[in-house]
């Protein structure tokens, strides 16, 4: 383990199931680990870690810039752009926030009138919180895609050693796919409701497409009938932990505190989960 890393992606198909609770506490429970927050639209992990020694990097994408002296108004770029980011009235107009940075207009301009300039789409912050290195991304509101930020986050993480916990965005869109693409193992977090089971099935489908080994963590369990547990049984998904609904844990979490670093009476469950993961990835 000393000279390599193990990437554990924590995903759920739905928001609010406990992805951050699980990934933050697992990272804190390990001897030394890295926590990567890929939920760039609503990053929350840093609220728990409150990292220090923060280094910030701005993330840019390229967008076209027109040289009006060379542009002859042929509109080949306007016709080419699949995203409708260009228009031509009396001169060429570029709509920055619609542009997807494909570079096609620059390639296609017969007059070489288009070059590229940078547009800020978000930031990446790295920091330290005791035994955890934190890498957090945040997308500027209104920007098209968090994928370039996620790529940057995972690139920063790849040279770290030991466990890397990836807190994924909710859902199963392209940002989630980018987050799990290089993972060694996936943890699926599910709630004990039909909503939870439905979303677990979507997350499971995604994980299968990428052919990743996986296991489930059932969160907020109450001892009542659990449709998510049913789903796991039906599909042969091993359940690595059941986190009971617990006012004490709920309060610690809702106050932005990390259970394994507090006096939480049941913190063993996170350490036990970590052991199970270590066994599985051997």
């Amino acid at each position: 383990m000393a000279d390599r890393n193990i990437k554990i992606a924590v995903l759920s198909g739905k928001g609010g199931t406990g992805k951050t609770l699980v990934s933050v506490n697992l990272a804190a429970a390990a001897n030394k680990s890295t926590y990567v927050d890929c939920d760039v639209e609503e990053p929350n992990g840093h609220l728990f870690f409150k990292p220090t020694a923060v280094e910030k990097e701005e993330i840019f994408v390229k967008i076209p810039n027109v040289n009006k002296d060379l542009c002859i108004g042929c509109k080949k770029c306007v016709e080419f752009c699949k995203f409708n980011a260009l228009a031509y009235g009396k001169e060429l107009i570029v709509f920055d926030e619609v542009c997807h940075s494909c570079g096609g207009c620059v390639l296609i301009c017969p007059q070489k009138a288009l070059t590229e300039k940078e547009k800020l789409i978000g930031i990446v912050e790295t920091g330290i919180s005791q035994n955890v290195k934190t890498i957090t991304g945040e997308l500027k509101t209104g920007e098209a895609s968090g994928v370039p930020i996620i790529k940057n986050l995972l690139n920063k993480a790849k040279n770290e050693k030991g466990f890397i916990f990836i807190d994924c965005p909710p859902g199963s869109a392209c940002t989630v796919m980018e987050s799990i693409a290089d993972a060694d193992f996936c943890l699926l977090v599910a709630e004990p409701t039909v909503f939870g089971a439905h979303n677990l099935s979507m997350a499971y489908e995604l994980v299968k497409v990428f052919d990743k080994p996986c296991a489930a963590v059932l969160n907020k369990t109450t001892g009542e009938y659990n449709p998510s547990e049913d789903f796991c049984g039906k599909y042969g998904i091993e359940i690595f932990a059941k986190i009971p609904f617990d006012n004490e844990l709920g309060e610690i979490n809702s106050n932005g505190k990390i259970a394994v670093r507090e006096n939480y009476s049941n913190k063993d469950l996170f350490y036990d989960l970590l052991v199970k993961i270590k066994e599985a990835v051997k």
């Binding site: 306007v78 995203f83 409708n84 980011a85 260009l86 228009a87 031509y88 009235g89 709509f95 619609v98």
Partner: peptide
Amino acid sequence: ESAGGAGIKAAQLLLNEKIDAVITPRCGEN
């Protein structure tokens, strides 16, 4: 039918038709 930038494309189509004015209930900034 566009996935995005529909207003921009619609406006461009009208420019291509050499329109002088538009009458509409709403219009976006783009």
